[in-house]
Design a protein around this nucleic acid. Structure first.
Lengths: 201, 201
DNA sequence: TTGAGTATATTCACTGGTCGGTATATATTT
DNA sequence: AAATATATACCGACCAGTGAATATACTCAA
């Protein structure tokens, strides 16, 4: 039986993930992955039951690190919450200038697997995006009550994923900055409404 | 030589488009399309040079009608510009409740063809999204000057495409409503800034 | 310490099926 | 007869996945 962790398994996940992100899930064959890892295709099927399993394992593996990058960018930056959220978009604009940048692997997977609604990779993508949304909600809690924070978190997520899609299409990182400005404006407006309510009471 | 228009050609485009939208570009084979049209595969290749050509022709054909739907929803609705833009999101929320809804075909094509940057379908998708953005810019011109209108148009596009992506992932049409509220808020804020400047002068 | 036995890990060679695309022939229309 | 349009049958390449054999590493009794 294959173990849950082994050097070979990690090498497979790493190489396969790079290929999936660079070329797309369906554009990458198991033969191609095997060659990239320097291993026979049979070894792939020793460590993973199927290609679909490998895809899902890759996305599950990326969940925590991806969220950690957002949290890092947020924590490192100066200013109020709106500034810190905007900093995430600025960093993404920088990343998107690299030729190797190809958008969000989770969103892309959900598009490529749109005809397989029960695919485990889609569940992984959903879980990841919900974790990001929940984290945003927690840091936006200082702006307003639960409902305001939740709505703002959703709006930020919409701008974030919108920028992923639009920048991938037009290859124009400026959209990340425009999205960041919109996110900051919405957050400040949320805070503003609270101040208005405080004055009222 | 194949003509630019013929009943058979139209039937192919129609059936192929439905399949592409429902299943994804790579998940649909030319054999499958031929069977759906009720025609031999050879006939497909008489009317279209390749599968890639067929994909591009489908997206080019969808450009104008898709934009027209947005314009129709905008024109039919009551209220100011912010309300009318929000109405587009509300209508999309309604559409997304259908089981057959699968997001935006243009965005999905750009994701599926991410490893073929020069693909004609990507050019078609870019042109379509830019046309939508330009139209939004023209209707937002009444809110502020060219720069304000352009920024707002981009922010609306970001929320629109973000909602396409997020709703496709979570299958939760509510995100369209949240996105519409954000778009309306940003537009009203744009108008508000103008009023402030007018007061100042 | 060694050697038999066992679980783990990997290789080679292969399969059935699907894919995009085509060579050739044949209708149908002008 | 010439141009347009469709059908039959086929090709080589690629794809996900597998059967059988083998190498490596660990376990434990003599």
């Amino acid at each position: 039986m294959a173990r849950l962790s082994s050097p070979t398994r990690d090498r497979i996940l790493d190489a396969a993930g790079k290929l999936f992100y660079a070329e797309g899930l369906r554009a990458v064959s198991m033969d191609g992955i095997a060659e990239a890892v320097g291993v026979t295709k049979r070894t792939l099927y020793y460590h993973f039951r199927s290609k679909d399993d490998l895809i899902a394992a890759w996305l599950q593996m990326r969940d925590q690190p991806n969220l950690a990058v957002f949290q890092h960018w947020f924590a490192r930056s100066e200013g109020d919450v709106a500034d810190k959220v905007q900093a995430i978009f600025d960093q993404l604009a920088r990343a998107a200038r690299r030729r190797t940048w190809k958008g969000c692997g989770f969103l892309r997977a959900s598009v490529e697997l749109v005809n397989l609604p029960g695919h485990p990779a889609i569940a992984a993508a959903r879980a990841h995006k919900k974790r990001v949304e929940a984290w945003l909600c927690s840091v936006l809690r200082e702006v307003g009550d639960d409902m305001i924070a939740q709505t703002l978190a959703r709006q930020v997520i919409l701008l974030l994923d919108g920028a992923f899609a639009v920048v991938l299409l037009h290859r124009d990182p400026e959209y990340f900055e425009v999205a960041g400005a919109a996110a900051a404006a919405l957050i400040r407006r949320g805070r503003h409404e609270i101040l208005k309510e405080q004055r009222r009471s």
